[in-house]
Design a protein around this nucleic acid. Structure first.
Lengths: 345, 345
DNA sequence: CTGTTAGCGCGTTCAA
DNA sequence: TTGAACGCGCTAACAG
């Protein structure tokens, strides 16, 4: 038998369907006695409104589309969790599309055409489903201008941005500056940095933070303390070796991600150096594994949950026609563990 | 201005809306010339069907609800990825609900009432949204009978089960048996095991696999090689210490998860034992971090992607009225890394 | 065989 | 408080 609809309620309560609707939504006053009858019927028939029908009429689905370039990449789950956090409290539902880019194209993000069709499809599915807005979660931060066309629907980017839309980003420069400040507070001054790929925006910004700290704290500036890595473990390993082989090696190494940090740890270990006694290390990302390394890695944690939360909150305001500007972006915070030691003065 | 609808197309192509619908769905023959006109109009107006309206009429949304107890828990993303994999190829959309249990109630799963309301809400939201079926992804395997009532909608459980519904599980017993076989092939016979909490079904099943292997391979049976851990790193550490302090210590330790495996690694290191030269270790789960440990941990990988894939595939068949039985469950497979050595004969 | 008319699905909302 | 139009697309029934 069919699901019970508003009609069944009306029939049983001996009122019109309009009245049922008013009771349901409190849109209008209804005589208490009538209301009671209606509610009794709703109860008895275990009625549950059909949101699809409601959406059709209201022209609003209370559903937002979330496009993630790859759910299995480490940043996605926590961002989604932040989205859900807000969504739960505002009756917003999440239609999730997973582009699965990591499986489909690996890291070839330069080749936009390779994944444009996936992104375009995702958008058109979502638009067809009449979502009220879209959140796009990239795998890594880059310019996504022109990738998709959302035909005027509100959209928010995170871990990526376009020249036309709002995007939620943490402040890379501030983050690496803060990591440096911490190291300085711990008594370090010869601090090396291993960067990510230099075609990446976060890499460049984090390097800026490094320079700024070097200047502000009047640290000895030595270009040979700056290594250009590629985000992978091997490059951390390779450059840590170079760094540790110097005549005047650094006392601390800031690695732009935890993965390279693993390489650094390994290089130190192989040289018989112990961390943090002989060399301090700070990573970036607070990947789950950084807590399982030995020593446990001190690292800059990313505000993933907050980014998701802010993304949907902002989208929500956009949907409701608010004029959104001057957003305060969430900040990274240092997760202090065991890979940095305090240097004696 | 309003989104262009089927009506606009009809108007422009000078046909009735019925004809447009026929062209759109290929439901009936349409004269080529007419079809061309319609298609031209669709193109010109950039028409995109309103799936909401379609769903209302069809009484089918092509959307399935995915309830995850917590997206940020390690098993969720890959299961979801598997769900997407199938969904992509069958025009199925995913409405994701995240119960966020890890944040809300931690590990207190005994206290069902603490999260029943979340689960119930999730189901009723999903039902209201008229999903065609539901997949429930637990945080860990347990009996979920009676938790929710889906009012006859098809539902599939994974990482959990009920007495009434279909659930997708890998075979724990086979998995630990296989891990043991591997160790035996590598020349080990004194093999210890550190289990998870014994109120957990996987723990018990994996222990069965262990016993079975001990019997089948005629390994020396020594009860002191069996330790009851609690899934946490500390218990791995503690029991590894006990094991390694024995007069006749094992040559290999099978840990029922990678987290405890980290504790085992640490215990060995502190004793000046090197892995795998002095002691071999096999973990369970293939957590991301197991590849970043040193040595890289050999571990039983879970077929998460496959579970998600099979879950939605089965759900799809259920939705289409097929009679589903005798499912072949996906299997764990060993990820061979560097923590086991071949013992000389 | 091709095209049209009209009612339906379910809830919202305006006019009466 | 109610009847009826409406949102958008599907489809049965009918006409040519």
């Amino acid at each position: 038998m069919r699901k019970t609809s508003i009609k069944d309620i009306a029939l049983r309560a001996n009122v019109s369907i309009a009245t049922v609707s008013y009771v349901l939504n409190g849109t209008r006053n209804v005589r208490p006695e009538t209301r009671r009858r209606v509610q009794e019927a709703i109860e008895a028939l275990n009625y549950q409104p059909n949101e699809i029908a409601k959406s059709l009429k209201r022209n609003r689905t209370n559903t937002i589309g979330v496009i993630t370039e790859d759910v299995t990449v480490f940043n996605a789950p926590d961002i989604i969790d932040g989205i859900n956090d807000f969504g739960d409290h505002h009756d917003l539902h999440i239609l999730l599309v997973n582009l699965r880019l990591d499986k489909r194209i690996g890291r070839n993000f330069q080749d936009v055409e390779a994944y444009r069709k996936y992104a375009t499809n995702a958008v058109s599915e979502l638009l067809g489903k009449q979502v009220d807005g879209i959140i796009y979660i990239g795998v890594h931060t880059r310019d996504l201008t022109g990738l998709i066309n959302v035909e005027g629907k509100p959209i928010i980017y995170t871990y990526g941005y376009t020249q036309d839309d709002i995007s939620i980003q943490y402040n890379d420069e501030q983050a690496s500056y803060e990591a440096m400040s911490y190291l300085v507070r711990m008594g370090h001054s010869r601090i090396a940095i291993i960067s990510g790929l230099m075609d990446s925006i976060p890499s460049r910004r984090r390097l800026n933070g490094y320079y700024k700290a070097v200047t502000d704290f009047e640290l000895p500036f030595d270009p040979s303390l700056i290594k250009m890595g590629d985000w992978e473990r091997d490059s951390g390993y390779r450059y840590a070796n170079e760094l540790l082989d110097m005549d005047n090696p650094p006392t601390a190494i800031l690695s732009m991600n935890d993965v390279m940090g693993v390489g650094v740890l390994q290089a130190a270990k192989e040289k018989g150096l112990s961390v943090p006694e002989d060399i301090s290390i700070v990573g970036f990302d607070d990947r789950e594994f950084s807590d399982y390394l030995s020593p446990r890695l001190t690292t800059m944690g990313l505000p993933l949950h907050e980014m998701g939360y802010l993304a949907i909150e902002t989208l929500y305001r956009l949907i409701n026609g608010e004029d959104v500007q001057n957003l305060t972006m969430p900040e990274c915070r240092l997760i202090e563990r065991d890979s940095v030691r305090m240097l004696e003065a």
